[in-house]
Design a binder for these strands. Structure first.
Lengths: 327, 327
DNA sequence: ATATTTTGTGTAACCGGTTACACACACCAG
DNA sequence: CTGGTGTGTGTAACCGGTTACACAAAATAT
């Protein structure tokens, strides 16, 4: 392995000059620049990032802490983070936390020892000490808790209102809202958005609390529909739950969208693979990840942040689980 | 930040002794051990991994190079790799290659400068110089090319035969095989498996080549079914393609599984969310990732490998897109 | 009793960079 | 002509670990 000293020797200058040339700081004469350039090329020199990190106490590593990459919402997010990281010369470490604070803490501790630059975190435990005490840049994604941590999220409230209105506009008068877990911030915002919109509307509604899981949602909806056959609209606050609802409807022989309309929330790609295609309130998942990554990198590089709270707009994607609007 | 020298001073020993204690090599007396232990605890000392790496030329980093985490096949794989890595004290770096050799090369180069331990690679370019010349442990996943690289994959041939037989057993006599991309090794193996099984069977068949993408598959199948309404079975060599086929069938008003039976390949979780649930030849995706990670770590730690070629069995998961077996 | 091996420890070089500081020289102002 | 500023460069300390080597004491062999 060629070192900076080899380069210095070959170029006939000191290591300091080579280092200055490499980092583009301090004075380097044109002559020296040329000589170093040539030596670098000739020796095929590549800087040793580890040695560099040891001095600068920086690495171009960023950590992405998320509950579970297996959840279809996260891969696109991860992809966005990785894409942006790459363009800025950063590398991303994947951390599946399972929402387990102990695992999260373990990651933050381990990675601090590697001089990691910062973290993008999707967690409900953002007020846990391993985040508040970390002294490292953090950007929260999707879920806010701690005021001091910059966050990017969707406009969940507005999105839920949008979805609810879509159901009402399409004639639904007996609506089931699948609320999602109570401890989940975005789920709560969506709930509020739903309530705000349904309130005063000429419609009955029910709310079911449950996890964002396919099978549980399917079972939940199946028994609900059996007990409440008059239900003509379901708004699920996640696409996976909506898929469960759709499956339940199929199982019961209910015609979607003629007798029951379904709208999901998230905009994951699976939505279009269902039959009928899932109408959904789509988040711009990629954009969320990309914005978060850019924010984090700005923080790491000590650049000013224009905003500590970035809200990404949502939009309704109309597919087959809803009818056309009644006029 | 407390350093090893602080610990040494507090414990009244030399840094060498502390280092030996920390790494569990060389001689350390009971007394010294106790003193160091106490000092470590008192000072809350944590070893600096970067400084350590600089000497040992090792980091507990492993790279996971895959085409695109957004493809539903990969998250589970990534999850498995990460889980295993974690238990062995390794950290995984996520690299989306888009099957682009240049991007792959970029990653391998960049990460070598960080003394990365090795790579798990899912790529068709395994014979590219950045892999053959890398001098770092590599394990190939899913796709073999280079003899010298250990690999873990599913038994694709056998799986395809299994799926084909399932279709035949269920009465299909006009079978469409969705072959997948020609440059893809597993797709070719599946093709061979299909051919081996269909050969000699009392059935007509067609083969369509196309990417493993939902929309393309849907369009492809739609036009095929229009031209060949007698088709009574589709074997797609990926679940995503199968989902496209199912969607096309629905669009054309074909009853699945009564008039057309569909079997996919992969066993991704989306399969059960479809209606009807997708019958599929399931790979044990998690197991594949886990085995690959364990193999890589063995290589990194210079432990002997029992096998350089690990084949994970597949199994047929029967759901709603197939009928019961004719007897 | 002496020779040899094993155990235990410390000093200092080293991994491969960065950078504070000292110094030299050129240029310009007064 | 002197002093100040800007430019260019090298030496050596430093980042925080690991480890080769030297050496001493204890244990064991002869």
């Amino acid at each position: 392995m060629t070192t900076i000293r080899d380069v210095a020797k070959k170029a006939g200058v000191s290591v300091a000059t080579v280092s200055r040339y490499l980092n583009g700081n301090g004075y380097v004469s044109k002559d020296a620049e040329k000589a170093v350039e040539a030596a670098v090329k000739e020796l095929d020199y590549e800087i040793n990032q580890v040695a560099r990190s040891l001095n600068t106490k920086k690495s171009n590593l960023i950590g992405l802490i998320l509950p579970d990459i297996t959840n279809p919402f996260f891969p696109e997010l991860a992809r966005a983070v990785e894409d942006v990281a790459l363009t800025y010369g950063y590398t991303v470490i994947l951390c599946n936390s399972d929402e387990n604070p102990e695992k999260e803490r373990n990651y933050t501790e381990q990675l601090k020892k590697k001089y990691i630059g910062g973290f993008i975190v999707i967690s409900n435990q953002l007020d846990a000490p391993h985040y508040t005490d970390i002294k490292l840049p953090i950007v929260a994604l999707d879920r806010a808790i701690n005021e001091s941590v910059p966050i990017v999220s969707s406009n969940n409230r507005e999105g839920a209102a949008l979805g609810t209105r879509a159901l009402l506009d399409r004639g639904c008068r007996n609506i089931l809202f699948l609320r999602g877990p109570e401890e989940l911030n975005p789920a709560n915002d969506r709930y509020e958005g739903f309530m705000a919109e349904i309130d005063g509307a000429d419609a009955h509604f029910s709310v079911l609390t449950g996890p964002f899981h396919f099978e549980e949602s399917e079972e939940l909806v199946e028994s609900f529909l059996k007990a409440h056959p008059e239900t003509d609209g379901i708004f699920a606050s996640s696409d996976v739950s909506a898929a469960g609802a759709l499956k339940a409807a199929h199982k019961l022989g209910i015609d979607v969208p003629e007798d029951l309309q379904i709208i999901g929330f998230d905009g994951i790609s699976m939505g279009e693979m269902l039959s009928p295609g899932l109408t959904t309130v789509a988040q711009d998942i990629y954009e969320m990840g990309a914005v978060a990554a850019r924010m984090l990198i700005k923080l790491i590089e000590n650049q000013p942040l224009e905003e500590r709270f970035h809200e990404v707009p949502v939009k309704l994607i109309v597919r087959g689980t809803t009818r056309s609007v009644r006029t």
